Structure formats: structure tokens, C-alpha cells
Amino acid sequence: MKPKILAIIPARGGSKGVPRKNIRDLAGKPLIAWTIEEAKKSKYINRLILTSEDDEIIEVARKYGCEVPFKRPIELAQDDTAGIEPVLHAIKQCPGYDYVVLLQPTSPLRTVEDIDGCIETLLASGSHFCVSVTEPNQSPYWMYTLENDKMIPLMPQEKLVTRRQELAKCYALNGAVYVGKVSAILSEQSFLTEETTAFIMPKDKSFDIDTELDMVVCEQLLKTKRNIL
């Protein structure tokens, strides 16, 4: 039997790094619209909803065809609200689904191929969770903490590797796609466990907008992609 899949877009109004970023114009449409439009193309997602406490964001999401079945309680839209809390709340408001796909609107370069690819990876693996990752620009093997202005390797090595080709491959969360089995999410209250499977995405689709510079870079990449197509 084909599993029932609920996709959730979390978008609160209180962004600090880029004010009102979820509805800021990005290459001709609100940031959140890029995620809504790609999610609606999925061949696996049965229902796409927004969770937000912000009336303006809700209005924009509905304009682009995203369902908003409830308004998020303000206490779940604070700076210190854990990211899983709005997901748990949405699951309770919309019961009856086997899997949840979390799609943050700050990943405008993520496409339906990435969304469906992550879902397919999870279903094929038999795991309860799958999240998207990418290779970081800088390897953690070349990162340091500071103690009294002295450099302390973040990941101590017997011998310092000086050639990138010799470094162990590392991956970082890119924030684009999180998929989990509903029962496991309710139990673990996280998408990240020792059993979580990775779905690897390329760097050029892995930008997570957190600063004004991120907005500029993504705008240029989206316009370039549009010209190529």
C-alpha cells in the first residue's frame, strides 16, 4: 500500500537575520513560493500545509496554493522554539499520515527531484528518517577552536593532512529536506538519530538563506538558472 505523506512548510514571521525573509522577493516571487511550487510537483506528497503564526505569510502561502489548515500558536513561534515543536504540533492537527516531509522555505534552490529523491531514499533504506546533506566548503579536519589565542584542532589527527584529496569525505546538514516516519518522529522527537539515512545534494542547490548575502547569491543563481532554461 502506498504510504500517506504530509509535507510541512514552517514559516514564522520573526526572522532576525533577514527581516520578513519568508515573503521577501527573490528573483520575482516571495521566497516561500519557491518551496511551495516544487513541493506541489511531488509524486509522493499527498498533502502540503503551512504552519505559521503570521497572517501575511499565511496569505502569501495560500496565494501560491499551499493549504493552511490552522494558525500556529504564538508560543510555538519564538526565537527559542525548538524546530521540531511546530512539526509535532502539525502532526497532531493533521493526523492519519505515515510520513512527514519537512521543507524549510529558506532552501529556494531545492527542487522536486531533491524532495522525491529524499523520500525514495528513505523508503528504499527501510530507515525511519532521511535528511539532505551536502559536502561543506571547509573540512572540519581543517577547523580549530581557540584556547588563549592558541589553535586547537577540532578533530585531532596523528598527522596533519595538507592535501584536500586525502581528507575523509564529510557531510553537513543543508536544511533542505527532512523526511521521517510519523510514529518515529513522535517517539524520538527529532529527525536526527544514529539510524538516520543521508540524501546527498550538490552544493549549488544547498544554500540555506540566513543572511542578506545568502539572498544575493541565491537571487543570482536562480536568475542564471532561468536564463539557461
Rank of each mutant, 00 (worst) to 15 (best):
T111S: 15
Y144T: 03
C170D: 01
R24S: 15
A77M: 05
L123V: 08
M151D: 02
C118D: 01
L31K: 06
L76C: 02
L6C: 05
S52L: 09
P108G: 10
K43V: 11
K225L: 01
K92R: 14
V179R: 10
N46Q: 05
E219W: 06
K2R: 15
S125V: 05
E120R: 14
N174M: 00
L31T: 15
L109E: 11
K159G: 01
V87F: 04
N137V: 00
Q165C: 08
E194D: 09
S206I: 09
R24D: 03
C66R: 09
E166K: 13
A7M: 07
I57D: 06
K29I: 13
D98M: 07
K150N: 04
L222P: 14
T196S: 06
Q93R: 15
N174W: 01
D210A: 14
A176R: 06
T145Q: 08
E147S: 13
G83A: 11
K16F: 08
K43P: 02
C118A: 15
T224V: 12
V112P: 09
S139V: 00
K225S: 03
L221C: 08
T111Y: 10
T145N: 14
G180I: 12
G175K: 02
L123I: 14
I84V: 15
C130M: 10
I74V: 12
K205S: 11
E195K: 14
G83C: 03
G28T: 11
R226C: 01
G65Y: 09
W142M: 03
V217Y: 05
A61G: 06
S139M: 01
P95Q: 05
I115N: 06
M215L: 14
K41Y: 07
G126N: 03
D79W: 12
D114I: 01
D149M: 11
N137S: 01
Q93N: 13
P19A: 12
A90P: 08
S132K: 03
V161F: 03
I36D: 10
I36Q: 10
A11V: 01
I32N: 13
I119K: 11
L186W: 04
S107G: 11
M155E: 04
I209R: 00
L48F: 10
S187C: 04
V112W: 10
Q157H: 05
V112G: 02
P202S: 11
Y99R: 04
D204V: 03
M215C: 12
E56K: 14
G65E: 06
C94Y: 00
K203H: 04
N148F: 06
M215A: 02
I8L: 15
K21E: 12
V133S: 00
I119V: 12
N174D: 15
I119T: 06
E147V: 14
A33H: 08
E37V: 04
I228E: 14
I58V: 14
M1Q: 11
M201Y: 02
E212C: 02
V182A: 08
K40N: 12
E158I: 10
L122C: 10
V177E: 02
I84A: 03
V177N: 05
M201N: 09
E194R: 03
Y141P: 00
A33M: 10
